[in-house]
Design a protein around this nucleic acid. Structure first.
Length: 515
RNA sequence: GAUUCCGUAGCUCAGCAGGUAGAGCAUUACACUUUUAAUGUAAGGGUCCUGGGUUCGAAUCCCAGCGGGAUCACCA
């Protein structure tokens, strides 16, 4: 199948040939040395003019205002845009005006990368610009870039807003939408902030297997793959929890990993099939310590990014300053339904759910029923960061039993803006109890719960050697980034969100034209 | 997976009581040596997502498919 090139694409390919015929390499190999960037020039030129007389700058050509024998253009580098001024007699001092008349005026297009040397000056109208003394084509662009213009009021015209275009061709989105770049820089800032916090506490960053023979540590449907040499199924990890705990058994006091997890479930604006959870485990701590640490961490992230703990998220203000409200899951359900479920057995719970018109079936055990009740009736109400604590044992197979409350475990979830952001516990380190909990999961699986956990015998063996009392947490990094960058869709905090393949082959047709 | 909206030039969009496809920016040509959504004059550019159907005639109406968004379900 041959996809025809557009008029503009053909033109650019023709220009490419003209450039080569003129003896100019459109994709030069040698380094182009740079000694300034756009943001630096704009910020520092006025008070430090002496240092901006011999500038070497490179960037992508975004706009040209041609005046005949001179032109203004805008170049964009990784720090932003800057205006440059190109005068024919300046870059072509002799008789030969081809560099200007042909290369600059005819052959260079919007989207090309060019390198310039020159000096910084301020134009009549007061814009800091680079006066070009020499010009070099660094890379020819063969596809026209959407042109987004910004007027005096700062309004963008013809901005590309089509989500499909933006997600499939993120590289273009990043070039033409400066806010998108900022969001991703902030995502990295969130991760750096966390890493600094953890490293300052002498935590050890580790890597654990992504390919696992038993997908453990969470309740979710895994992706299955196959290892040919071993001739066995392998699962992409749904969590790294059981491996990090093995490392606590091995004697590390505090380990952490930014874990790319894979769950074979639905997709929407808060779910992508692959996503990132930060998990960390700390020896000799409990879930109270973990709540304090979590508050401190989130407050620090907000401060590092925004210099304030109070952030605008959609039409709400969310305050990340510690401490956060704590409420038990039973009290939360009582508060929002008026029903005390703390003493109910499975049958009574199922009836209660039915009365509240919640969809339930016989495969659901006590834990899942309570989870449903909370998720449907309560979760949405917690906008400010809130710790929901003390879950029933049935829904927490890896969590230590509560020190005083029968039937509960020492667990909390952190809810922000109606969404779960973190999940943490005092870790179950009693190997006998852990084995019993796994066996309960098997019974759930036999009843038809396809998310129940498998027994991980090696993990049990590790616990039998002894794991110190430990507290652990998983923090949803993508969702945290959505809050910190004020984005409503997970697709806007992932560079390349999962998409169905495009119907039309993008590459095939175009290759067959150029080979 | 269900419901609903959307798919027209490189980009943003208009066109729909069915009658041979339009604008702005971008592109091409010419003019212009401090402009800034530069300007002026002229020109080119489209399997109207794909495939069927109704009709003398479909971008427009109907059906199916593909892709995307939103809402819901599952879930973090």
């Amino acid at each position: 199948m041959i996809q025809e090139l557009s008029e503009q694409e053909l033109l650019r390919r023709n220009k490419l040939e003209e450039i080569r015929k003129a003896g100019i390499e459109p994709y030069p190999a040698e380094e182009f040395e740079i000694n300034a960037n756009a943001a630096d020039i704009k910020a520092n030129y006025e008070r430090d003019k002496i240092n901006y007389k011999d500038i070497s700058f490179a960037g992508r050509l975004m706009m040209v205002r041609d005046m005949g024998k001179a032109a203004f253009a805008e170049l964009q580098d990784s720090t932003g845009k800057i205006q440059v001024y190109i005068k024919r007699d300046e870059i072509c001092p002799g008789e030969d005006k081809n560099l200007y008349d042909l290369l600059w005026k005819k052959w260079i297009d919007l989207g090309d990368f060019i390198g310039i040397k020159g000096y910084v000056f301020t134009t009549k109208v007061g814009e800091i610009s680079i006066h070009v003394q020499s010009l070099k084509l660094l890379s020819k662009s063969l596809k026209p870039l959407p042109v987004v213009t910004v007027d005096k009021e700062g309004n963008a015209h013809d901005a590309v807003t089509d989500p499909e275009f933006r997600y499939r061709q993120r590289y273009v989105d990043l070039v033409i939408n400066p806010k998108v770049r900022k969001t991703f820089e902030q995502r990295t800032a969130v991760i750096n902030s966390i890493r600094t916090f953890l490293n300052n506490h002498s935590a050890l960053e580790v890597d654990t297997p992504v390919l696992q023979s038993i997908p453990g540590g969470a309740t979710a449907r895994p992706f299955i793959t196959h290892h040919n040499a071993l001739d066995m199924p392998l699962y992409l990890r749904i969590a790294n929890e059981l491996y990090l705990k093995r490392l606590i058994v091995g004697g590390f006091d505090w380990v952490y990993e930014f874990s790319r997890n894979f769950r074979n479930e639905g997709m929407d604006r808060t779910h992508n099939p692959e996503f990132t959870i930060l998990e960390f485990y700390v020896a000799y701590k409990d879930y109270f310590w973990m709540m304090k640490t979590t508050e401190q961490l989130l407050e620090k992230i907000a401060m590092d990014l925004h210099d304030t703990a109070e952030l605008e998220v959609g039409d709400k203000k969310i305050n990340f300053a510690a401490p956060y409200k704590r409420i038990s899951i039973y009290d939360a359900i009582k508060e929002h339904t008026g029903i005390d479920v703390s003493k109910m057995d499975e049958v009574a719970l199922r009836d209660t759910c039915k009365k509240l018109h919640l969809e339930v079936d016989d495969s659901m055990g006590k834990g899942k029923l309570i989870d449903t009740l909370f998720g449907e009736k309560c979760e949405d109400h917690y906008i400010q960061p809130t710790f929901i604590i003390d879950y029933p044992v049935e829904m927490s197979p890896l969590t230590k039993k509560h020190r005083t409350e029968e039937g509960l475990v020492e667990r909390f979830e952190l809810i922000i803006n109606g969404k779960e952001i973190a999940n943490a516990y005092s870790e179950l380190n009693d190997p006998i109890d852990q084995r019993a909990r796994f066996e309960d999961q098997v019974k759930l699986m036999e009843r038809g719960d396809d998310e129940a956990m498998f027994i991980d015998h090696d993990f049990l063996r590790a616990l039998e050697y002894g794991m110190p009392p430990t507290s652990g947490i998983g923090i949803g990094i993508d969702r945290l980034c959505m809050l910190m960058t004020n984005q409503v869709s997970i697709q806007d905090v992932l560079f390349f969100p999962q998409m169905r393949p495009e119907a039309k082959a993008v590459a095939e047709g175009e290759h067959s034209q150029t080979h």
